[in-house]
Simulated scan of single mutants.
Amino acid sequence: MSTDATFQDGAERPLRLVAMDGDDVQILSALCQDAVFPATEMQWQRKSRRFGILLNRFRWEDIPVAERTGRAPERVQCVLAVENVGHVSSQGVDRADTDTVMSLLSVTFEPQDGDGGAVILTFAGDGAIKLEVSDLEIALRDVTRPYASVSGKAPSHLD
């Protein structure tokens, strides 16, 4: 008999998650909320049908440990990769502006006929990217060690 994982099980291990349905996407979205990255860190590889972003993800899963130990909250660099992408469209996103720092608010999936649909990346400031996929597969993988959040606190949407 297996048991559910706990926060302590993944405390110092890099995340490696794959979303294959709408419920999985909700979990992935919660972990990616408030991730920041330069607009230049997005790439669509048309031939391989992959869209990827190198994110600086806030480690929401680490908040209980940080609060208990009194250390600063952390961020970690990770790759968000969406597979099976046939078309990309955007609104309010200027990849040519190298000074733009994007803040990811959510990742959602809108199913369509069959296994396909649209993955929507919503950013602060009314920007969005729509990725039309033939089959849902999104991977999130931490690629660096965690580092102290520059602000020293968790992001807040109340300000």
Rank of each mutant, 00 (worst) to 15 (best):
G125V: 01
I27H: 15
D9I: 01
R145P: 01
I120Y: 08
L136R: 05
R71D: 02
G125C: 05
E12V: 03
L54R: 09
Y147P: 00
D23L: 10
L55C: 09
D34R: 06
N84H: 12
T3D: 12
K130T: 15
P73W: 00
A124D: 10
A139K: 08
D142L: 01
Q91F: 11
P64S: 06
F51G: 03
V36T: 08
S134L: 14
E74W: 05
V101I: 07
I129M: 10
V82R: 03
G117W: 06
M1A: 07
D4F: 08
T69C: 03
F37W: 02
Q45H: 08
Q91E: 11
R59Q: 08
S89P: 07
C78Q: 08
K153A: 07
V93P: 04
R13M: 12
D21K: 04
A81N: 05
V101P: 00
T122Q: 09
S90T: 11
F37A: 09
V36M: 14
V76D: 05
E74A: 09
S48H: 06
A19H: 03
G86I: 08
G52C: 11
G10M: 14
D34H: 07
T69L: 08
A148Y: 00
V150K: 14
F37Q: 02
T3Q: 15
S134C: 13
L131M: 10
E61I: 04
F58D: 00
G152Y: 06
V133Y: 09
G22N: 12
A148D: 13
R49T: 14
L28P: 05
R59I: 00
C78S: 15
G86K: 14
V143M: 08
S156I: 09
I120V: 11
E110N: 11
G116K: 06
A128E: 15
I120N: 14
D97T: 00
T98Q: 15
D142F: 01
E110R: 15
P14S: 13
D113M: 10
T3K: 06
M42S: 09
I53H: 01
L54N: 08
A30E: 05
D99Q: 10
A154M: 07
G114R: 06
F109Y: 15
S151A: 12
L31Y: 02
V133F: 07
N56H: 04
G117S: 08
R59F: 00
C78H: 04
F109P: 02
Q26M: 14
L80C: 10
F123S: 04
W44A: 15
P64K: 05
S134W: 05
R145A: 12
Q33M: 10
G92T: 01
